[in-house]
Simulated scan of single mutants.
Amino acid sequence: MNTDEALPPSPSDKVPRTERGRKTLRKLLNAAEVEFGEKGFHDASINGITMRAGTALGSFYTYFDSKEAIFRALVSDLSARVREAARKRQDEHLPALEQERVALAGFLRFASERKEIYRIIDEAEFVDPSSFRDHYQSTAQRILERLRAGAQRGELRSDLEEAHAWAIMGMNVFLGMRYAVWQEEDPERIADIAAGILGAGITAPKERQED
């Protein structure tokens, strides 16, 4: 799936019914990502979005009623694209730890290409708190489902719960901030480090502790 073509859910009367309409909506969302990412929600404007998209002002109101509406749709869109980026190289037959490594590497690549995502998602906490919560809750739920599947196969501990998924997500979020947004590093190397933490922890082997 091409993540640039993924579109967020819209009210029934706002769903584009033609290929041209879908392309226009995609242009508006891409332009909104840049506008909000560069200026922040309060300084961004509908005119700025339409100018970046190369669309008429009327086209904006065909799909969105306000700046808040397109921001909400953008958060949903980015969340969906993060999901697809993490899934891109996943395979249900991969070992559980490898699935987490692949998911993180995919996210790091996405974040390095779309650095604005951190500012936009952070602002969502104040602009549209429900979108902010939905983004993180749905991400943690996907991780938890993978962990439980790994536990059922006997690859992971049987006592894994929601807090474990949130801990992994928290690690991934900050790794993305440091190694994809602030300074780009090889996503595979960073994902390997994270997988090492998940697989072996950070305590020294017992024999070393006894030396």
Rank of each mutant, 00 (worst) to 15 (best):
Glu19Gln: 12
Glu19Cys: 06
Arg20Thr: 15
Arg20Ile: 15
Arg22Asn: 05
Lys23Ser: 15
Thr24Trp: 07
Leu25Phe: 03
Leu25His: 03
Leu25Gly: 05
Arg26Gln: 15
Arg26Ser: 15
Leu28Arg: 00
Leu28Tyr: 00
Leu28Asp: 02
Asn30Glu: 08
Ala31Arg: 00
Ala31Thr: 02
Ala32His: 00
Ala32Thr: 02
Glu33Arg: 03
Glu33Pro: 02
Gly37Pro: 00
Gly37Ala: 01
Glu38Ser: 04
Lys39His: 10
Lys39Glu: 06
Gly40Met: 00
Phe41Tyr: 11
Phe41Ala: 05
His42Gly: 08
Asp43Ser: 13
Ala44Cys: 07
Ala44Trp: 06
Ser45Leu: 13
Ser45His: 11
Ser45Met: 13
Ile46Lys: 09
Ile46Ala: 09
Ile46Arg: 10
Asn47Asp: 13
Asn47Ala: 12
Gly48His: 03
Ile49Cys: 11
Ile49Leu: 12
Thr50Asn: 09
Met51Thr: 14
Arg52Asp: 12
Ala53Asp: 11
Gly54Pro: 04
Gly58Pro: 09
Gly58Gln: 10
Ser59Tyr: 10
Phe60Ile: 08
Tyr61Asn: 06
Thr62Gln: 13
Thr62Asn: 12
Thr62Pro: 06
Thr62Gly: 09
Phe64Pro: 05
Phe64Gly: 05
Lys67Thr: 08
Glu68Pro: 07
Ala69Thr: 08
Ile70Val: 11
Ile70Glu: 06
Phe71Leu: 04
